[in-house]
Simulated scan of single mutants.
Amino acid sequence: MEEVEGERILSGTILLGEDFEPFEGYLVLRRGVVAEVGSGRIDSDLDGIICPALVNGHIHLGDSVLKDPPYLPLEELVGPGGLKHRILQETPRREQVEGMKRSLSFMTKSGTCAFADFREGGVDGVDMLYEAMDGFGMIGRVFGRPDPGSVRVDERCWGVGISSTRDHPRYLVEEVVERARSEGKRVALHAGESGRDDIEDALSLSPDLLVHLTKAEEGDLKMVAEAGVPVVVCPRSNLVTGVGLPEVRRMLDMGILVGLGTDNVMLNSPDLFSEMEFLSKALLHNDRQVFMICTLNGARILGADDEAGAIRPGKRCRIMVIDNRSDKMWGVRDPLASLVRRAAPSDVLAVL
Rank of each mutant, 00 (worst) to 15 (best):
V55E: 14
E218A: 06
V173R: 01
E307W: 08
H58L: 09
L10I: 08
K101M: 14
D134V: 00
T91V: 14
F136R: 06
T112K: 00
E155W: 05
V187H: 05
D127M: 00
A350Q: 14
V265A: 05
E175M: 12
G135Y: 10
I199G: 09
T13H: 09
G25M: 05
V97E: 08
E120N: 10
I59R: 05
D198H: 07
G192T: 13
G303I: 04
G81S: 07
V4G: 02
G303K: 01
P22E: 10
R152Q: 12
G255L: 08
G140R: 04
D197G: 04
L15S: 13
V65C: 08
G111L: 04
E218H: 08
G99T: 11
N297W: 06
L210W: 05
F136L: 03
L61M: 12
P230V: 02
Q89N: 12
M329S: 04
E275W: 10
R325A: 12
K67R: 15
A202M: 07
E277I: 00
L104A: 01
V33T: 15
N56R: 06
M100W: 15
L267R: 09
A225D: 01
D134Y: 03
L284A: 09
V231R: 06
V34S: 13
E18Y: 14
A310G: 04
G242T: 09
S274P: 00
R312F: 09
R166F: 09
M329T: 04
D334W: 00
N324I: 07
A35V: 09
E307Q: 13
S280E: 12
S103E: 13
F106M: 11
A337S: 14
M251W: 03
A180Y: 03
L10K: 02
V28G: 13
E120Y: 08
D197S: 12
I9L: 02
P70V: 04
S105E: 15
T112E: 05
R170M: 01
R179V: 15
R181T: 13
A188V: 08
D347Y: 07
D154G: 04
D347S: 10
D334Q: 01
D253R: 11
V142C: 07
R250H: 06
G137R: 02
K84L: 07
V265L: 01
I301K: 03
F278I: 06
E5K: 15
G303D: 15
A350C: 05
K215W: 00
Y171T: 13
L77S: 09
E178T: 10
G159L: 11
M320F: 10
C157K: 01
L46G: 02
L46E: 13
C157Y: 09
E24D: 15
V123D: 15
D147I: 05
F118Y: 14
E226I: 01
M1W: 02
V187Q: 08
S150K: 13
L209Y: 06
V160L: 08
A116Q: 03
M276F: 08
I256Y: 11
P313V: 14
P345G: 11
E120F: 06
